[in-house]
Nucleic acid binder design. Structure first.
Lengths: 415, 415
DNA sequence: ATTTTTTTTGTAAAATTAAACAAAGAAGGT
DNA sequence: ACCTTCTTTGTTTAATTTTACAAAAAAAAT
């Protein structure tokens, strides 16, 4: 390896801070050291020159999300993850980032963290680049220590989380005690999130997940675990105004990033209602699993729904189906329409389905059906006539909708 | 009594036809004899002069419905039911009725039928009036015979009907056999109707019911019976285009007539789906009773609904309630809105209820709430904001609707 | 083969609904 | 008592939806 004799970093440092100061002195630039998830580990203080991005990072003890996003988009982070060479980043005023150079800290094939050098007044030379690489090598051991400490804590938290999920902790004090011993402040309100992946989650993907979760700054994640193809999170809902909207954004963003950054597709995200009692985590978990199961049955209809609260009539599909079956009820209107469709091979049933799915909006439904709005109007008049339906009556509409979807589901089952 | 010696009708007649001919000869006018329900019993044939109403009556073997309605409206029938004196009816061209005189046939305090004398070329004298009264007296016995024969048949049909209603006749041939022995042609499709009265149905009201049912000409009533405060009908649905619409009209008309003609109010009418299998009468009966029970729970919401098929979401209220209870689910949006209402004593919940009940029609809802449409719009924006609701999403709307109605029902229970 | 009925599409006018503002009263907080 | 925010209503304009009518293609009936 390239440990040269004149490696100024080949010594024992008390702490990462000490190393940061040393690098800063050698390169004559401000320095920050982050872990793999862009959380601040250490920064040099002897130099007062800096840029807004660095200030924000130090204040928040983490790199701001928009900076991370920008660095992903423009390729810096992917580059750092694929090479041990220092990477130069151009000035990006829109996010307050001055010129800088970064290098990743490696252990085997894994990135443990990053060292950032802000080029305020100077530009690093080739020689300084190789010094920076040596500094990265030197930081490795300290980061490893941190990681093993973290791993131990993680193991304990995993066990605790599973006890909560399976309802093995009923006592309030016990739950609070556990949180405290893990140095987690339990939020007063929470939501449980489940991301269902298409395949079992590999160690590699687990790292990616961990990265995305830690760099997220919208939600405080209290606990998380992975169960074969599901990622399960316990998330604080405190101090969030439009909780569902925010959760929606968060899960979509997560799914988007997994696809965009790591090429992992087909993740189904789901989140529970807001709860205030940690004894209800089991309930929240089952609620989430129920949503996943319903989404499997009606993927199209529920593709934009991620939580039980917004499932609408689909909350009830199991019992609706059961009742219909036990009553052997037949929707008379649908029967008449079906008979007409058969006889004239028309598609009134499909027309009705789309119309109702589009919430009785003629324009939207016509677009979906690729027909003129007047055509749809004509068909609806025929449907009203033939099926003895009154579209002014919301009760008739909901019955038809339910029975159409039940029929669709049952037809699927028969295949 | 006024049996005079020169009563030409004081003899034994072979049949009512013979009596009709005799009256016709004596009064020199065409004569028809009807039972209490305006069904044709006999008519004179020796005279060819007549009017359109009489022709229609003879052809259809009953007085046309519109003629009956007109005679009620204009007071002839009420008069005939209250006096034993002959009543003169003026020409009514719009229903094809020429001048005529009618007298009712009495047994004690009950009207058994009517004799109609058409005054084609002449006008009856006072003397002829009293002859007519004698003729009515003479017709009494023949009508009584008919009635007892009918009663026997009715008794048998009642027993048969109850066997069907309680599902004690499973065998098809057996059912068909019973119909034939009662000289009823079973229709290939039928509906079961139940009219629920506020009080038990007295003998007097039973007669009124019988009258209304027999004079109706929209639906062929195969069987009917009375069970304390319920009138139950088995009605043919054959050859009717818009079955539900027609049934709706029929039951409303019945309720209207009971109120208008006999002052009997608060009748709740209900009818079953259309069935083709007489083994399903029990099912149809239970279906009807279920609708009655739901209508009791949600009288306002279901006041214009008379059949299971059109109940919409109310078909499912029992199981929806059950599921909500067993899940101890709380609608988050409603919770937020309720909290807001409490704090600011506003009425967002009520606003939302009316809005959804009016099928998201802003104008209708604003009218119902007695506020300006802009006010409602403003409130809806607030509701969307506070309750985190999206009114573009039909699933969210239906959830809210269901939970509002469930809440309403439960609040009622707690009183 | 031809007549009738059903279905689709287009255009334009009428009607309804939604959005944008402004004004003013009511309610809440300091 | 004063200021701010919330709520209601009115007016106007813009946008959208509904309706009416006509033409023509397609399907069904005779």
């Amino acid at each position: 390896m390239n440990y040269s004799l004149n490696d100024p970093f080949k010594m024992d440092f008390e702490s990462l801070e000490e190393l940061a100061e040393m690098i800063s002195q050698v390169l004559e630039c401000p320095v920050t050291i982050e872990d793999a998830n862009h959380r601040l580990l250490a920064y040099s203080t002897h130099d007062e020159r800096t840029d807004p991005a660095r200030i924000a990072t130090i204040i928040g003890r983490r790199v701001p999300e928009k900076v991370i996003n920008q660095l992903w988009k423009e390729g810096t982070i992917p580059a750092l993850l694929s090479t041990k060479e220092p990477i130069r980043v151009k000035n990006m005023d829109e996010i307050g980032l001055g010129h800088r150079v970064a290098v990743s800290i490696w252990k085997q094939e894994e990135v443990l963290g990053f060292i950032w050098v802000i080029e305020i007044d100077k530009t690093l030379t080739e020689e300084e680049y190789s010094l920076l690489k040596k500094a990265a090598e030197s930081a490795k051991n300290k980061l490893l220590q941190l990681q093993t400490r973290k791993n131990k804590k993680e193991e304990r938290s995993q066990e605790f989380f599973w006890k909560l999920l399976t309802g093995h902790l009923a006592n309030h004090e016990e739950i609070t005690g556990n949180f405290h011993s893990l140095q987690i402040t339990p939020a007063s309100s929470y939501s449980l999130l489940v991301f269902q992946f298409k395949h079992n989650i590999s160690g590699k993907i687990e790292q990616n997940i961990s990265y995305l979760l830690t760099t997220n700054q919208r939600f405080k994640i209290m606990l998380y675990t992975i169960d074969s193809n599901q990622l399960i999170l316990l998330v604080s809902a405190d101090n969030i105004r439009h909780t569902f909207e925010e959760l929606n954004y968060f899960v979509r963003q997560f799914v988007f990033n997994m696809s965009e950054r790591y090429g992992v597709n087909e993740i189904t995200p789901v989140y529970s209602s807001i709860y205030y009692d940690y004894g209800k985590i089991k309930h929240a978990y089952h609620e989430s699993l129920e949503v996943l199961s319903i989404k499997e049955k009606f993927p199209e209809e529920t593709k934009d729904i991620h939580t039980y609260q917004k499932l609408g009539i689909y909350q009830f599909f199991d019992i609706l189906l059961q009742k219909r079956k036990s009553n052997d009820f037949e929707n008379y209107s649908l029967k008449l329409l079906y008979q007409y469709d058969q006889k004239h091979n028309s598609n009134l049933i499909e027309t009705l389905d789309v119309f109702l799915t589009k919430d009785a909006n003629i324009n939207d439904a016509a677009k979906e059906l690729n027909v003129h709005a007047n055509t749809l109007n004509y068909r609806l008049k025929r449907i009203a006539e033939i099926g003895e339906v009154d579209f002014k009556d919301p009760n008739q509409k909901i019955s038809l909708y339910i029975d159409l979807k039940l029929r669709k589901y049952q037809n699927m089952q028969h295949l």
